[in-house]
Measured scan of single mutants.
Amino acid sequence: MEVRTIKVFTTVDNINLHTQVVDMSMTYGQQFGPTYLDGADVTKIKPHNSHEGKTFYVLPNDDTLRVEAFEYYHTTDPSFLGRYMSALNHTKKWKYPQVNGLTSIKWADNNCYLATALLTLQQIELKFNPPALQDAYYRARAGEAANFCALILAYCNKTVGELGDVRETMSYLFQHANLDSCKRVLNVVCKTCGQQQTTLKGVEAVMYMGTLSYEQFKKGVQIPCTCGKQATKYLVQQESPFVMMSAPPAQYELKHGTFTCASEYTGNYQCGHYKHITSKETLYCIDGALLTKSSEYKGPITDVFYKENSYTTTIK
């Protein structure tokens, strides 16, 4: 009895394709271990004539594949690729409408935090270190965002349907971005203890939790000093293409032309909904596939993004 075979390709990165001759009487799992086709788990399936010449994702289970996976995804987590594939199996079914010149995501599976993050990423200057993220990001900007969303979920250790947080998501993504040249110098002034300067680099240099107003941050924000008295913390120097200011959701007025974009969060910790506000020729609110415009805006804002380049204080 002759062994019926077909020729397929296996890959971990969709760049390096490895030619395989597979036995049609055995499952993919018996031949390769966990195997995925377009995100779908085909591990328990036997090869079919229609699979001839198709590319299958496999887990990096030998040295060659491990090197290829690390170079593309910059992670050695053995569960990463499987999590990416199972997320992709959902995100490829989502709709990605162009809204006001940006790629958004039609609401499904509690994905409003991903839509808000995706919209924000198209408006701030950011370059990702893992080629996987950078490639998928370019495709997302062009309207094909399924891979990018699935990668975000995998890097953030999230599953489809789980509630997510924009600030946490951005923080994970910033860790995989090139923020080497970003720098922030802060000064804390206390009447009792004097003053202390701190220099922050990388992710810490672009994120701040405690106030939404970048102007206020430049002037000074009140913080408790270690001595128990009130101290003032203010920005001395900022070198970065953008800054992200966050605070627990509270009524906040966004003035046209003073910011790049913002995240609105309605609801409580267990259950809520994100919308995205962007400042173009007027203010726009993007909620999944829905767009509304207004000249002014007041609502429960939790993150505001500002364009920056270089700032030095005039406070002496």
Rank of each mutant, 00 (worst) to 15 (best):
T226V: 13
K280G: 14
D38G: 11
L17C: 15
I152C: 08
Y84I: 00
N61E: 08
F128K: 06
T313K: 15
Y96A: 02
Q238P: 02
Y137F: 14
V185E: 10
K298T: 03
A142T: 13
Q197H: 06
M85P: 00
A231T: 02
D38R: 09
H273Q: 00
C271D: 14
T43A: 12
N157C: 07
T64Q: 10
H18F: 00
C156Y: 00
A247I: 04
V185C: 02
T159Q: 15
S181W: 14
T64R: 11
C193Q: 02
T199Q: 09
Q270V: 15
V12Y: 05
T314W: 11
H276L: 09
Y57D: 04
Y96R: 07
A117T: 09
F80G: 04
W107S: 07
R139E: 12
G288D: 04
R66P: 02
T292D: 12
A150Y: 00
H74C: 02
E71K: 04
V58F: 07
F174P: 05
K201V: 11
T75P: 02
E68Y: 06
F148H: 04
Q98V: 14
F70L: 15
H273G: 07
A146V: 05
Y138H: 14
T313A: 15
G299N: 07
K46F: 09
H273K: 02
T258D: 05
K183I: 06
M24Y: 06
N89I: 15
C149S: 07
Y172H: 12
L283F: 04
L121F: 11
E71G: 07
L37A: 12
F305N: 13
L179W: 06
D62E: 12
E204K: 12
I6P: 06
S79C: 10
C225G: 03
T198G: 05
P224W: 14
M245A: 02
G202P: 01
Q251C: 10
R4M: 06
Y73W: 03
E296M: 06
G202Q: 05
L290F: 12
V58P: 06
A145Q: 05
Y208M: 11
K106A: 15
R4A: 13
G288C: 00
K218P: 01
S263I: 11
T312R: 15
V304I: 12
V236A: 09
Y73S: 05
T116Y: 03
A247L: 00
V189S: 10
Y57E: 09
E281W: 08
V58S: 06
A150G: 05
V206R: 07
Y214E: 00
P224N: 14
F259M: 06
K127S: 12
Y234T: 11
L254Q: 00
W107A: 05
T169S: 07
H18L: 05
P249M: 08
V3S: 12
S213V: 05
G161C: 01
T103G: 00
V21L: 14
G101A: 06
Q196A: 08
M209E: 13
L151C: 04
S279F: 05
N100Y: 08
R66T: 08
T27G: 07
Y284C: 14
D165F: 09
V236T: 03
E162I: 06
R139V: 05
Q222A: 08
G101Q: 09
K93P: 11
E264A: 10
V3E: 14
K293V: 07
Q197L: 10
Y28M: 02
N89G: 12
E204G: 09
A247V: 02
V166P: 04
A132T: 04
Q20I: 09
K191N: 12
Y269D: 15
T198A: 09
S240I: 01
T55A: 11
R184W: 13
V3G: 12
V42A: 09
H256K: 12
T75Y: 01
T260C: 08
T10Q: 13
K46Q: 14
D77N: 04
N16K: 12
A108S: 07
C156W: 07
T260R: 09
C225R: 02
T314A: 12
S263L: 08
H256C: 15
N14W: 10
K93L: 12
A177R: 02
F148W: 06
G257T: 08
L59F: 10
T55E: 08
L119G: 04
T192M: 08
C156H: 00
G33I: 08
E68L: 08
S25W: 13
V166M: 11
D303Q: 01
V21E: 12
A154Q: 00
Q195I: 13
I152M: 10
T314V: 13
Y57K: 03
H273W: 01
D180S: 12
Q175D: 06
E239Y: 05
T258Q: 09
I45H: 12
L283H: 04
P47N: 01
E204P: 11
Q175E: 00
R167I: 05
E215G: 06
Y265C: 07
F259P: 05
L163F: 13
F259A: 03
D180L: 06
A150H: 04
G33E: 06
M244S: 01
L179Y: 05
N157R: 07
H273F: 06
T260I: 15
A247S: 10
L133N: 01
T266R: 08
T260S: 02
V21N: 13
P241F: 05
D303Y: 01
Q238F: 02
E253S: 13
E144D: 13
T198P: 01
Y73H: 01
L179D: 08
A136F: 07
C182T: 05
L121H: 01
N268K: 06
Q270W: 15
T5G: 12
G272W: 00
E253K: 02
Y138S: 13
C112P: 08
S263T: 10
S294F: 15
K307N: 14
L200I: 08
G272T: 00
K158F: 05
F305D: 00
V304Y: 07
V99L: 15
H51M: 08
C182V: 11
N268S: 14
L291V: 15
N187M: 14
I315S: 15
K44Y: 15
S50Q: 12
T64N: 10
T313E: 06
Q222C: 03
Y252A: 08
E253A: 13
T55D: 05
M24H: 12
D287W: 00
K229V: 08
T278L: 12
M207L: 06
I152Q: 00
F70N: 13
G82W: 06
E2C: 10
E68F: 00
P60W: 09
N14C: 08
C190E: 09
N157W: 00
L118V: 07
Q98M: 14
